[in-house]
Nucleic acid binder design. Structure first.
Lengths: 149, 149
DNA sequence: CAAATTAGTTGCAAAAGTCAACTAATCTGA
DNA sequence: TCAGATTAGTTGACTTTTGCAACTAATTTG
């Protein structure tokens, strides 16, 4: 009998506990962001002329979910929606100064947490690890191969 | 500026896409289990004299959530609750024959999916990968070091 | 230009998760 | 020993997260 834990069991548990750690550290530092909000800010910050549909495609989520998550960030004045100049159906999401500051702070904490989580992992192991993660992601058949974020 | 993706961003996305792949494959094979239900079955199958509180502790979830997830498995006749002989507060969760059969089927599919996801990953890389995952899990400070499942 | 497609939006509902209160059983220490 | 603390399970009420379907307005395409 194969007693090795299923891959997704292992990854899921690690992900869950890591998320708890991140959120606890956010709270300690008075950052009131969910992990999803943080990731959304990260993505909006990294991309120019980003639309909600782009986000939905990238994360394989329903666009209505992205709509609502974005609304929260807008209510917080972290993000604004601006009509695209060329295509009036589209709206570009743009970080505000306030949003950028909050994001930068959260990013610093997040990097710190990552470092802690990777304590005892060598640079070489990390490279291999990220390499395997990438392969897994590609093997899902979902992930956009051309993607750079 | 550090352009590397945050660790949890990468892991989260990989986890999400992998979950989509697993659920799609479950559906193709007429398995009507959520990933959480599958993992719960896995855990109940692996452990003797398991209580809901044990599960809640292990997965760092509220016991009321475990209660409700277990109720679903009981409604499906996959699991039964049996009063512990020694401690009448406790109830042990036990797989039924039906539950075991469904689990075994799902496990087979899950192993298959894992294999597909690990396509192109060498045995050595996998060992390193699981090693890093374990370290991360331990570094969260949550994970029970004595645990074997 | 009519028909199909696309981006955003909204309503509805289901699923997932949290928190507090409660019961019954067990444990603990003065 | 037995009163008070603790533990496991349960329930209710609530919030958050998520997905689906329908709709509008703008754009693309044959």
């Amino acid at each position: 009998m194969n007693t090795r834990k299923p891959l997704l069991y292992l990854m899921g548990q690690t992900m869950h506990l890591s998320k708890l750690r991140l959120l606890a550290t956010f709270k300690e530092n008075d950052i009131e962001l969910s992990m999803e909000q943080f990731i959304l800010l990260h993505f909006i910050n990294a991309k120019e002329d980003l639309t909600q549909q782009d986000i939905a495609n990238h994360f394989y989520r329903d666009k209505s979910l992205i709509m609502r998550q974005t609304n929260i960030l807008i209510d917080l004045r972290y993000v604004v929606r601006m009509q695209d100049r060329e295509d009036k159906r589209k709206k570009n999401l743009i970080l505000t100064k306030k949003g950028f500051e909050v994001f930068e702070h959260a990013k610093k904490i997040s990097d710190q947490v990552s470092q802690e989580l990777l304590h005892g992992v060598t640079e070489e192991e990390l490279i291999h690890f990220e390499n395997v993660i990438q392969k897994i992601q590609q093997n899902t058949g979902f992930s956009d191969l051309a993607e750079n974020c």
